[in-house]
């Protein structure tokens, strides 16, 4: 158990360092920008006839620092604000705190990503077992090929193809936003049905995106387990194929938890493209919109939160792995 806590602490430590590096990076990015957005805002307030002190205070609220202080002091005040969970004030969502804007967007990223993850895990792992057992037949080969192909295709290609086929060409599924805008949000039948039908395409894209990874990892894992002595022994003892399959699956599934962290990172990173295509109001969409609107506080916040999500996914994968495989704990 000691080894586990130590490894988790190391993970947590590197994760915190990463978040710190990303925060520092965005801070200096805002400073390195030509015509520093903080200064530009300050000038704009002055031309609107505001007193220099009030203008400075307003800029400080938005960015967490003013460029009239020495750089180090700006940096420390920005970091201090960040530690208190204050990411500044959004510019494009007039006056709303960045934290609030992000909190509204976060569920719309988490919900499709996690649903897609569960779907792709179930389908991909099953297909991986089949591809491993039937690896010398034509169907097994085709199944592995589908895995490598889907794993290689860029996310937006999948998203655009799905959107085009199911929305434009066959007109089966709706597209854009989270639900029909005419419906009243709440716990009622039509609204929930609309949310689900609008989520089908993004979820399918996320699922396809990580399907290949699960399939290939599960296939190679099953192939290596199939060669183990205990499988031969269970075969000789006349244990039914179904039970033997259960033995194989339980042992083969262990190395897959490294894929979990990888595909979660992949999905959160890909959310920028996927949410933009489906016009889904999640974190990635927020990041892109903030760049279009030159809303730097929001941009920094969204980028930071995507990083935090990936770091957390990594820690979670490590934790799950050691809970499931007792050998790691020692």
């Amino acid at each position: 158990m000691k080894g586990l806590t130590r490894r988790l602490l190391v993970r947590l430590g590197t994760g915190l360092v990463m978040v710190w590096v990303v925060a520092t990076f965005t801070f200096f990015l805002v400073h390195a920008l030509p015509g520093n957005p903080g200064d530009a805002q300050y000038e704009q307030y002055l031309t609107q006839g505001m007193a220099p002190e009030t203008a400075r205070a307003k800029v400080a609220v938005i960015y967490g620092f003013t460029s009239h202080e020495p750089l180090l002091q700006q940096y420390t005040s920005y970091m201090w604000q960040l530690l208190q969970g204050n990411l500044g004030v959004s510019i494009s969502y007039t006056g709303e705190p960045v934290v609030q804007v992000i909190r509204a967007a976060l569920p719309w990223t988490l919900f499709p990503v996690l649903t897609g993850l569960v779907v792709s895990f179930l389908v991909g792992v099953t297909a991986g077992v089949v591809a491993a057992v039937r690896r010398s037949s034509r169907w097994g080969g085709l199944l592995s090929l589908s895995g490598s192909l889907v794993a290689g295709v860029p996310s937006f290609v999948l998203a655009l193809l799905l959107a085009f086929l199911f929305h434009t060409l066959w007109q089966i599924l709706p597209f854009g936003d989270t639900s029909d805008v005419t419906l009243e949000p709440g716990f009622n039948g039509p609204y929930i049905a609309s949310v689900i039908s609008h989520a089908v395409l993004p979820v399918a894209t996320y699922a396809l995106l990580s399907y290949g990874g699960w399939l290939l990892a599960m296939k190679s894992s099953v192939v290596s387990v199939l060669g183990d002595d205990f499988i031969l022994a269970s075969e000789l003892r006349g244990i039914t194929p179904l039970t033997r399959m259960r033995y194989i699956a339980r042992n083969a599934i262990l190395p897959l938890f490294t894929v979990l962290a990888l595909s979660l990172g992949f999905m959160f990173g890909g959310s920028v493209l996927i949410e933009d295509i489906f016009d889904y109001p999640g974190l990635g969409n927020l990041l892109l919109k903030s760049i279009g609107a030159r809303d730097y506080p929001l941009m920094g916040g969204a980028f930071l939160l995507i990083t935090v999500a990936i770091v957390l996914a990594n820690i979670l994968a490590e934790l799950l792995y050691s809970v499931i495989d007792p050998r790691v704990r020692r």
Binding site: V272, L287, F303, T307
Partner: peptide, 14 residues
């Protein structure tokens, strides 16, 4: 671990 694609988008601002 760093989210590469979001990083590229953020970099594109400067």
């Amino acid at each position: 671990t760093i989210p590469a694609f979001p990083l590229l988008i953020v970099l594109s601002t400067v």
